[in-house]
Design a binder for these strands. Sequence first.
RNA 1: GGCGGGGUAGCUCAGUUGGUUAGAGCGUCGGAUUCAUAACCCGGAGGUCUCGAGUUCAAUUCUCGAUCCCGCUACCA
Length: 685
Amino acid sequence: MTNFKRTTVTSALPYANGPVHIGHLAGVYVPADIYVRYLRLKGEEVLFVGGSDEHGVPITIKAKKEGVSPQDIVDRYHSIIKKSFEEFGISFDIYSRTTSSIHHKMASDIFKTIDEKNGFVIQTSEQYYDETAQQFLADRYITGKCPHCGNENAYGDQCEACGTSLSPTDLINPKSAISGSIPVMRKTKHWYLPLDKHEAWLREWILENHKEWKPNVYGQCKSWLDMGLQPRAVSRDLDWGIPVPVEGAEGKVLYVWFDAPIGYISNTKELCDSEPEKYGKWEKWWKDPETRLLHFIGKDNIVFHCIVFPSMLKAEGSYILPDNVPANEFLNLEGDKISTSRNWAVWLHEYLEDFPGKQDVLRYVLTANAPETKDNDFTWKDFQARNNNELVAIYGNFINRALVLTQKYFEGKVPALGKLNDYDKHTLEEFANVKADVERLLDNFRFRDAQKEAMNLARIGNKYLADTEPWKLAKTDMSRVETIMHLSLQIAANLAIAFEPFLPFSSQKLRNMLNLKSFDWKELGRIDLLKAGDQLATPELLFEKIEDAAIEAQVQKLLDTKKANEIASYKAEPVKENIPFDDFMKMDIRVGTVLDCQKVPKADKLLQFRLADGLEERTILSGIAQHYPNPEELIGTQVCFVANFEPRKLRGIMSEGMILSAEDADGKLVLIQPKVKVINGVQVK
RNA sequence: GGCGGGGUAGCUCAGUUGGUUAGAGCGUCGGAUUCAUAACCCGGAGGUCUCGAGUUCAAUUCUCGAUCCCGCUACCA
C-alpha cells in the first residue's frame, strides 16, 4: 500500500425518499463510521463525508402522489435522516445534501470542465413528446404499430410480437402510454459519457492494480469490463435536478447518478469553506495524490463507484481515484428482503425512540452480523441474544465485576501494582496481541472479526478474575488482591479504547466510570493507563438486559406494520375514462379449461397454457410464472381469457389471447377463475 | 436466460497455496464457582464442508455440470 497522508471516506448518499433503515446501517454507515473512528483515534487526518441524494424521478413521482413539491419531500426525509444519523453516532464531518447551492455549482462546474475537454458525446435526436403530460417520453412509454409485423402494440424500443428492435420513430400511429395522447416529435439533445473510451485504463487500473478489492467488487467490475462498456446518457428531460449548464440545454437536468457522487465533493467543499482552519482547502481531500479515497457502499452501487464515477473524475482530469471500494452485501430482516415500499424494515429513527440509549447495542449487532461476504439475516431474537449473552454477560459483566470489587475492597481507588506472578504475565501476553489483531482486521475492512477480537479482551478479563479469585484472597492476601484488581482495571481501560470505534457511547460511559484521561489508539495494550490511587466513579451497568417483552413487541410491530401496510397502503387506481357499451362488447372474454400448463424454457416469468375454449384449443402465454411455482396444479381448473386479441409471438411461441389475473397490493398476480364450473367457451360479461 | 457473488456445526461466520483428529462465537448438554445483570470459568456433544461427475496416490479445497439464495441485466398481452 502506498503511504498516504490522509484519508477521505465517503458513504453512499441515502436517497431522500424515505428514512434510513438497518440495512443501510449494516451495509454502509456502521462500517464506515467504525473505520473513521479508528483512524481518528490513531491520530490520522481523515474526513468523513455523507449527505442526502435528492434528485431523480422517484422523488418527483412521490411528490406528485402526495400533492406536494419535490422540495417538500426531500426536506422532510433529509431532516429525518440527518437527525437519526447524529443521534446514532455516525460521526460525519459533514452531512449535507444535493439540493444545496454549492452542490449545484460544483456539479455544473465539473460538467462544464468535462464538456470543454470534449469528454462527452452529444447526440441530437427526435424524441416523442407528450403534450398532455408535458414531458418527453422514454422509449418504453410509447406504443404503436410495428412496421415489420403489423402488431398494433409494439413498444418504442422493441416489438415483442416479432422480436425486432425498434426505435420509437419506427412506430406507426404512436401513442403515449402515460396520457394516451398522440405524442409529437421534438428535437432533443443529450450528453453521453463515452465509457467505451475509458475501458483501456479502467481495465488496467482495476484488473491489474486493484486485485486486493473484495471478490464481489472485483468480480462485478471484471464482468462489466469483459462485456464491453457503452456510452451512458448523463442528461434527462426533466424539471427536477441540476440544469445542464451549457447553452441549448434548456429543460434538461443532469441525470441523477451523474450528480449524486459529485455530492461527496460538494459537501467536502461546503465543510472546508465553512471551517478552513480545521479542514484546509477542499481540494486536498480530492486532488492530492497523497490522499487515500475510500467509498463505502452496498453491492448495488458497485458499478457506479468503480467504473462510472472514476470515469467522470478521469474525464474531468484533476481528481484522484478511489483506492478501495469496500462494498457490502445486503441485510435481510426476519427472513425477508428489506423493502422501503413494503415497509419491511427496522427504521433507525423508530429504533432510537423504542430503544433510547441503546445505540451501541444496534451497532454491535449489526457489526457482529454484518453482511460482509454474503447476505445476512437480522432477527430480533438474535438482537436480544447478542445483547444479553455477549454485551451484558461478557463485556458488561467483566466491567461490573472489576469495578464492584474495587469499590468493595479499595473504596473505588485504583490499588497499587505489586509483583507480577507467572499467571499475571501469561494473561498480559495474551492481551498484548489484541491491538495488532484488531488493527490488521480493521485495515482489511473485516469489521466483524475485528469486533470479535476486541470482545476477546473482556473474555481474557473474565477468565483472569475467575482463575485468580480475588474474593477468596481478600481474606488472606490483600497485597495480592491489589495487584489483581490493578491489572483488571487496566484491562477495563483497554476495553474502553478497543471498543471506541465500535461502541462509542459505551466507551464514553466506561471512560467516565474509570476517570480515564488519556485516550489514544497507540495506548492500547499498555498497563499503565490508570495510576495507583486514582479515584474511580461509582460503577453503573454498562449494558442492560433486554427482556422478552421488548423483543416480542418489536416482532409484533413488524408483523402489524406489514399487514396494515398491505391493506391500508393500497389505493385503487382512479377509474379510467368512460367508454361506450359497444367498446366493451368488442372485447371477447371467455372461460376455458386448462389442459396443460408449463414454464416456458429460458423465460423466468412466462407460463404456457393450453386451453380448451369450447371450439378447439388454443395456446396462451402469461407472465405469472413466479406466482404459480407449480403450474401443473392449474391443469383442470378454469380461467378467464380475452379471446380476440391479435395473436403475438413471445419467446418464439404464438400466444393467442390474454389470461386475466388480478394484481394484488403486494404485486402478486392471482388468476381470475370461476368458482363454479361452467361450460368451456362461455362469455364473461 | 446472461454475468457476478455466495451455499462449511441448531444460528452467525472463519478456514483449507489439495494431505493426518475442518475451527470460532452464540445456542445446547454436563461440571465447577459465587465477586458479578441466574452472569463468569471449565469440559462434552453437534458437520458425508449443497448435490453429481472428473483430475489426483489424496478434494471440503482444482475442473465441469446441476441446484438454491442475492445483485446487475434481459423478459413479463
